[in-house]
Design a binder for these strands. Structure first.
Length: 506
RNA sequence: GCCGCGUUGGUCAAUCGGCUAAGACGCCUCCCUUUCACGGAGGAAUGACGGGUUCGACUCCCGUACGUGGUACCA
């Protein structure tokens, strides 16, 4: 029964998408593309209380930015819609009722207060995490304990109720996970999960199963946090008579905090100084959670970094194009253990990708920065500078910091790097150099260097002795491309002015 | 607490019983450059612990420890 591959990424629109979600989407995408299947975006907005406006658009924009766009789903259309669970609300109830009729589920009328009371009682009795399970359901208000007339009456009266799955008292659910192999659970350990909420919305458990079935999903890849509830889903497929169409499962390892203790969470970014969100996200209270995009990351770099977090391609190199990832991707090579997020390595990937960018692309990214500084330069000049400083840029936005002295004379000097060894001879050297520099007819790298070194030799000064001061004069500090390159770039007049000014200051 | 999943250098990780245990990031040294960076050459640093199984265990099994996830009318 080989069906066409259909995988889905099914996030909840509860806020910005963090990199764990991006990676889940990525693995789904790669798998689909590898097998010539479809990648579907489904929005799981069954919890009305947690719904956040704008989150859905954010998710779509993230996928677009990352270059892993869905073939089908919210924002993309398709034959299996609607793709928003809130819009599918009327579809779920019938399945819940089918389960009740078959004896696999039941109606429960307990109020939140009653359930809370039950929990308190059991906690007092020494149970740290009471569940509504096979033992407890015996004395709660549900269609298993209430007379059938009363159940009918309550239902007819429109009394609030939920539908819960009736987990077998003693059974074992075993299933094969593409990443973890055979996994089994004792049904007695899992509670009677709510399937249909009092507001008529399904919970995740009912919704995934129904939607995956209806949308003919063949492979369900999701985070490891879902592993414990997998038996509920497996049972649901069985109870609904859909076993044949059950997707293959793979539970992805979690991305953990770099400093230990738990999975990476939304707040770690601010705490540790790196982004965890794909794009900037403004929370309801107005705080900004920085995104990788705004921080200066290239999407290919982020994707490349993420794909290697929990997956190993089995080849020697680490830089992959999306196409190459698709070629190499193999769900069986996904790790079982969680991986810590390493921002240093993430930056390294970005640096690698920045190096692949053209000077023109770097220039494009720098234009707004210059505009903000009020600096105006010719395009060709900008591009030349970009090519000169590219190798020291980790982010596309790093050009200014590495090249500001090409746009304006240094405002301050690293005197400590010059003064200790400064003397009249050097001062004289620069005075003479300025005179000679004025006579250079072709102001280029080689001519300047020849002039500079020639003078040094004549005066019996080691070139190195005056090269550093020259650098400080031109850019203010111990950084930047080769000195003569700088001089050639900023021009004869500007170079001479800077040298004269600094020479009087040292 | 209970249940699940995991455990190779600081981090990401290769290895599918033969290991003198790859590679990458980071770190250190040297070369290049009398700047920074890039590049090049080296270096330090790893199998949680205890039992089996086996001629042989990092690899298989069992315990323990530790980590991590779940234990909601959240996903």
């Amino acid at each position: 029964m080989t069906r066409p591959v259909r995988v889905r990424f099914a996030p909840s629109p509860t806020g910005g998408l963090h990199i764990g979600g991006v990676r889940t989407a990525l693995f789904n995408y790669l798998y689909a593309k590898k097998l010539g299947g479809k990648f579907i975006l489904r929005i799981e907005d069954t919890d009305q209380t947690r719904f956040v406006k704008g989150a859905e658009e954010y998710i779509i924009e993230t996928l677009k930015w990352c270059g892993i766009e869905p073939d089908e789903g919210v924002g993309y259309g398709g034959e299996y819609g609607p793709y928003r669970q809130s819009e599918r609300k009327p579809m779920y109830r019938q399945y819940a009722e089918q389960l009740v009729e078959a004896g696999y589920a039941y109606y429960a009328f307990d109020t939140p207060e009653e359930i809370e009371a039950m929990r308190e009682r059991l906690k007092a009795g020494g149970n740290p995490a009471p569940q509504y399970n096979w033992a407890v359901r015996e004395y709660m208000k549900n269609s298993l304990t209430l007379p059938s007339d009363e159940v009918k009456a309550r239902l007819a009266a429109g009394e609030p109720h939920v539908v819960r799955i009736k987990m077998p008292r003693k059974d074992e659910v075993k299933f094969h996970d593409l990443i973890r192999g055979w996994v089994s659970f004792q049904t007695a350990q899992v509670d009677d999960k709510v399937l249909l909420k009092a507001d008529g919305m399904p919970t995740y458990h009912l919704a995934v199963v129904v939607d995956d079935y209806l949308m003919e999903i063949t492979h369900a890849f999701r985070g490891e946090e879902w592993l414990p509830s997998a038996p509920v889903h497996i049972l649901l497929y069985k109870y609904l008579g859909w076993e044949e169409k059950m997707p293959e499962f793979a539970h992805l390892p979690l991305i953990l905090k770099p400093d230990g203790n738990g999975k990476l969470s939304k707040r770690d970014g601010d705490r540790l100084g790196f982004p965890v969100f794909s794009l900037d996200w403004h929370t309801a209270d107005g705080t900004l959670q920085t995104g990788f995009r705004e921080r200066g990351f290239l999407p290919q770099a982020l994707i490349n970094f993420l794909v290697l977090l929990g997956w190993n391609p089995g080849v020697a190199h680490e830089i992959f194009s999306l196409d190459e990832m698709i070629q190499l991707f193999d769900i069986a090579r996904v790790h079982q253990a969680g991986a810590k997020f390493d921002f240093e390595k993430c930056k390294w990937f970005n640096h690698q990708y920045v190096q692949m960018q053209s000077a023109s692309a770097l220039a494009d990214a720098t234009v707004p920065v210059l505009a903000a500084k009020g600096v105006q330069v010719e395009r060709a000049y900008l591009e030349h500078i970009c090519s000169l400083v590219k190798e020291r840029c980790t982010f596309m936005s790093d050009v200014w910091d590495n090249a500001f002295f090409f746009f304006e004379a240094p405002k301050e000097y690293d005197f400590d790097a010059v003064r200790p060894k400064w003397n009249d001879t050097k001062k004289t050297f620069f005075t003479s150099f300025v005179e000679r520099a004025k006579t250079i007819s072709t102001w280029d790298n080689a001519s300047i260097e020849a002039c500079f070194k020639g003078l040094a030799e004549e005066m019996g000064i080691k070139v190195g002795e005056v090269q550093m001061p020259m650098r400080i004069m031109l850019c203010g500090g111990k950084f930047g491309p080769p000195v003569f390159e700088i001089a050639a770039t900023i021009g004869q007049k500007e170079s001479i002015e800077r040298i004269e000014k600094a020479n009087s200051l040292f």
